[in-house]
Design a protein around this nucleic acid. Structure first.
Lengths: 331, 331
DNA sequence: TCGTTTACCGTAAACGTTTACGGTAAACGA
DNA sequence: TCGTTTACCGTAAACGTTTACGGTAAACGA
């Protein structure tokens, strides 16, 4: 690989001059600048970003840890972050925690060793015992996405979970349902706690009680949704509606309902927090609270980038991205 | 941030010794090693990977450029690559070309500046006029994924496109269809050319002619699938079956067919190259040739990693990952 | 005409590691 | 007992940039 030194020699100038024409960081006579550019051309020179990073102490890279890029929700969230990053000259390194604290720990430390300029994190669980708790003591700005860790004052960009869950539940109540099973994700995760809160609020507001047997946890996985559904169905007095609180668990619900040939929405109404990609093509089309992961990613990245300027510690922000209820045939 | 120098001072040894206990690269007396480890602990020292990269000329990072991480096919391909990378101590930087040659160009050059140890590339179109053509002249190993550029001898991990398309077409023919519309992606891309070849082979083998009006191009996008379907439907003698050659275009097909309330498979049979995530939940369930993107990613990364050892130029490999026809209700 | 400004550019240190080279003292061997 | 091996460790250069500091010659101004 050719270095700045080679270019300097070829152009008959110093490395300082080459650097300055590359970065436009001090005026250079136009003919020398031209000579330098030609030298770069003939030598096929491309600055070594690693060396630049070492010297300037900036990597222009952001690390993101999400649970699984394969989940369309996170895929489009990451895409939003990526687009915003690239626009600003940053690259994104994505890591999948798979909801495992160990992996989360490993990746966050890896990202630190790589000296990321900033981090986007969707903590697993409530992040109470994880590496996330150390984060504020490092000097790396970070913002929470989708979920936040308890007890850490940091920027966060999240869906409006309680409003969404409230709307969904109220919608079911309005449709005449009294026994509504809710399938939550991981105990402690802000998303599940907030969605539970919205569910509760709607029920109590309608004078209905929150029955313990109708609250299940599915770990935000397909299998969990399936299992919870089975459990609901084997209740002596099963629910007439199921509120599944993420896309994967909804898949589990739909699969077992289809398998059991249960009529939707007659025998069982179904609503999902987080829409499925082709929800409208299902039979019946799926009613869902649709989130906006792309915007979450974009906004979070934007917020993170502003943190690079104001070391002056502006107050942390918690931004709520609105969700909307899309009523279709399953309720 | 604390440096290796701080640790050396704290432990009362030289930086060389610290480096060696970190990397286990030469024997160190066990008590000094212990002192060093303690010093690292109290100073909360974490090696600077940027400096390491500069010195060792290895970044332990791989760049991947795919068309869009939001497409489940690429999301799971990337996931496969990522898992294999992490296992081997490498990180992945993902870029989305959005099928735009300009973006592809920009990202590939960016990845070069960042001195990636290797590249995974799904070239846009046939890659004939793109930066991809320069790749062999750089010193960075790379492997093609999903598609390959023409005229470049390089490793590639691809789906068995002609066999898959052949099976799909033959399946339709066996079901009695004579006029089969095929929706291809981007002219020149190996995936579209090969899938076209499989389609042709099945037709001619059955003594059927390949009619030009039944071959459409949808750019691998939802809109393209929709448009092609409309065009097919407005033909004086429309096809009785549609073969869509990627997941997104299939979505377009399904949406317009549903919208027009055309009975599937009675009035129109539908088959897709690349399954949809919940294809079985559709009405009717989708018949598809299912690929294995996770394996493509994993294998490609594995292949790339082996290239780091053998600078001795083993012959390039082209690996075909098998596909399987999943017959469901839409045909 | 001559001091001062201006336009341009170069030298060398520094970023934080790794590693070649070499040095010292203890252990060993005959 | 004394040369040689062995076990440990340190010094300093190098990876490829950026940038503070300073220097020279031409232009300027009174």
């Amino acid at each position: 690989m050719t270095t700045i030194r080679d270019v300097a020699r070829e152009a008959g100038v110093s490395v300082a001059t080459v650097s300055h024409v590359i970065n436009g960081t001090r005026p250079v006579a136009s003919d020398t600048a031209e000579r330098v550019r030609q030298a770069m051309e003939v030598l096929d020179y491309h600055p070594n970003a690693v060396a630049q990073s070492l010297r300037t102490r900036k990597t222009h890279a952001i690390g993101a840890v999400v649970s699984d890029i394969t989940n369309p929700f996170f895929a489009t969230l990451v895409r939003g972050a990526e687009d915003a990053a690239i626009e600003a000259g940053y690259s994104l390194i994505v890591c999948n925690s798979d909801e495992s604290p160990e992996k989360e720990d490993r990746y966050v430390r890896l990202l630190r060793r790589r000296r990321m300029d900033g981090l986007l994190i969707s903590p697993v669980g409530d992040g109470s015992s994880s590496v996330v708790q150390e984060l504020p003591h490092w000097d790396t700005p970070f913002v929470f996405i989708d979920r936040r860790a308890e007890g850490i004052a940091a920027d966060a960009v999240l869906s409006d979970n309680v409003a969404g869950a409230y709307q969904a539940t109220k919608h079911l109540i309005d449709r005449g349902h009294h026994r509504i099973g809710i399938i939550l994700g991981i105990k402690g995760a802000t998303t599940t706690e907030e969605r539970l809160a919205g569910y509760r609020k709607a029920l109590t507001e309608a004078g209905l009680s929150v029955s313990k047997e109708l609250v299940a946890y599915g770990g935000y996985r397909i299998e969990g949704g399936r299992k919870a559904t089975e459990d609901f169905l084997s209740l002596s007095d099963p629910p007439t509606a199921i509120f599944s609180t993420n896309n994967l668990m909804t898949v589990g619900v739909l699969k077992t309902i289809a398998q059991r040939k249960i009529a939707v929405p007659q025998a069982m109404a179904i609503i999902s927090f987080d829409d499925l990609d082709l929800g409208e093509l299902f039979q019946p089309p799926l009613t869902a609270v649709t989130q906006n992961p792309y915007e979450i990613g974009r906004i979070a990245m934007g917020l993170l980038l502003t943190r690079f300027e104001d070391k002056g510690k502006r107050a942390v922000e918690e931004i709520r991205v609105p969700v909307v209820l899309t009523v279709r045939g399953s309720t």
